[in-house]
């Protein structure tokens, strides 16, 4: 378990740009190198023939619209844009696209979208899903947890086969790190729990989940189930 610098945040990202561009703007705006994000009910569109650099036309055709019901992902800055890894539930207005399996990160949001998440700064702590993140030396609030630690934790055993790449996990360690025991780890529901065939890689532990931004994140992720 490594204490890392992490910031809970809420933000609006722009619509109309490709999603990975808007998310890249957001990471740059906050000075984050990576983030874990949760987005709900965001209208989206994909206009046939429109290249990434072209603006959306004034007259929109609802047949090209749809909605991101929810998206839970880790994002990393990659040049100007963000690369995404995670899960999403979405639908298009066009019934012919009902069985689409792959979520294209170049689709465009049809309006600015509100999102919540946890942001990380560049540093020297290796994380598989977040890139190299900054260590927190002063009064750590969030810990990065990796497979090695979790293997020794019987309480969470039944979960560890169900979790995919990075995710948020909660526990309150109100008395500080010294009192933290595996039994105190209370995994909290997250969309990743729905995937039975995925392996747990990494998670985040929060010192204090009793605050407004955190309760928003928890409420949003419960709603994604």
């Amino acid at each position: 378990m490594v204490p890392i610098k992490a910031t809970l945040f809420e933000d609006f990202i722009d619509g109309y740009f490709p999603l990975n561009v808007s998310l890249g703007h957001m990471l740059t705006r906050h000075g984050f190198s990576s983030a874990w994000i949760l987005m709900r009910v965001a209208p989206m569109m994909e206009i046939p023939g429109l290249t990434a650099a072209e603006p959306v036309p004034l007259h929109l055709n609802p047949a090209h619209g749809g909605q991101v019901d929810w998206l839970a992902a880790t994002i990393r800055i990659s040049g100007q844009i963000a690369s995404l890894s995670g899960l999403a539930k979405w639908h298009w207005n066009d019934p012919a696209r009902a069985n689409e399996k792959k979520f294209l990160t170049t689709l465009r949001l049809a309006e600015p979208a509100f999102l919540r998440g946890v942001g990380f700064m560049a540093g020297d702590v290796y994380s598989r899903s977040l890139g190299k993140v900054r260590r927190e030396t002063n009064d750590p609030n969030i810990l990065l947890l990796s497979t090695a630690q979790l293997a020794a934790d019987p309480v969470s055993y039944k979960l560890k086969d169900k979790l995919d790449s990075a995710l948020c996990w909660r526990t309150d360690f109100s008395q500080g790190l010294a009192t933290l025991t595996p039994a105190a780890l209370q995994p909290w529901a997250c969309p990743y729990l729905e995937l039975p065939d995925k392996k747990f890689e990494e998670g985040l532990l929060f010192r204090n989940t009793n605050n407004l931004p955190m309760s928003g994140i928890i409420a949003d992720s419960l709603a994604c189930l």
Partner: peptide
């Protein structure tokens, strides 16, 4: 609203619709 273009100044409208839908 199938042809509207909301922008950044519509933040409160977007948040409101989100609460209504929730």
């Amino acid at each position: 609203r199938t042809r509207e273009h909301l922008g950044r100044s519509d933040k409160a409208i977007i948040r409101y619709r989100r609460i209504l839908r929730q």
